[in-house]
Design a protein around this nucleic acid. Structure first.
Lengths: 144, 144
DNA sequence: AAAGATTGAGAGATCAATCTTG
DNA sequence: CAAGATTGATCTCTCAATCTTT
């Protein structure tokens, strides 16, 4: 496993680069839109077709948070007027979450900030070939 | 910026693969040694030369946590007998943190678990060339 | 009983304020 | 006053327990 040195260094680098980038993007998001990254993530999942609305447990899976964590997160975002809880016709146990118009417009603004950040801190330093190679390599790792 | 699509997908992949790997490694660490990843990170910084001991604020920077967060983290780890606070000869404002013998042996056990995890979930799926290319690419991104 | 969502209790993090030493 | 560390208040997350509907 001494031969793993190069690979272990690659893992370290993956870890640190990810952390640094994530932090920059989160800080920009917070500064320029007032949204924490978690909120952006929720908006993202609700804004993109095919999902015009999602149940609580689906949304919890999608944004990778516990169900109780999501309950509170949705409480706060509903309070801010970005989301709405709606009854689900067929099943009275369940709640569907949708974007309010305010939520959608807030998301669209935030998406621009996010895209700009990714371009600035990531994309523009990468050739298209490099991006493709990176993506394929990482996808392979994720599937394992 | 439509040409950024491939690159943006690469960023998504970087984000998700990192999250998945991190989660697996953290779960194994917790299960097999009882240590949260944060604790491992503290031990790691104190175990590797040249640092035989570090001040609180240095350690806070190294593990990327707030100073007050570190105060409490060190409280807990000291309570478990893994760390010791020591006076700094020249400066009575400051505290030096060192590994106890128990802390060192706990770290050595944890390092094995960590190495095995990285090998299993990361290294063994990568050729040495791929690792080198990945590392260089990421290092370049981090430096920007 | 199981599925969906919420609530209560507790862990761990942050920011701002404070205490001590330089 | 500044630097180093800690404390108090608060935020957000998780796990376990609970309530309602299927």
């Amino acid at each position: 496993m001494a031969a793993d040195d190069e690979r272990r260094a690659a893992w370290r680098e993956l870890f640190e680069t990810h952390a640094a980038l994530r932090e920059r993007l989160a800080a920009e998001m917070q500064d320029e839109t007032g949204l924490p990254m978690t909120w952006y993530d929720v908006l993202l999942h609700l804004a993109d077709p095919p999902a015009t609305s999602m149940r609580m447990h689906e949304l919890a899976d999608a944004v990778v948070i516990s169900k109780s964590g999501l309950t509170r997160l949705v409480d706060r975002m509903e309070e801010e007027g970005l989301l709405a809880r709606e009854a689900v016709p067929g099943d009275r146990r369940s709640t569907a979450i949708t974007l309010t118009p305010a939520g959608r417009s807030r998301f669209e603004e935030a998406r621009e900030v996010h895209r700009r950040g990714i371009h600035e801190h990531f994309s523009r330093h990468l050739s298209e070939e490099e991006a493709r190679a990176l993506r394929e390599l990482l996808a392979r790792l994720a599937r394992v």
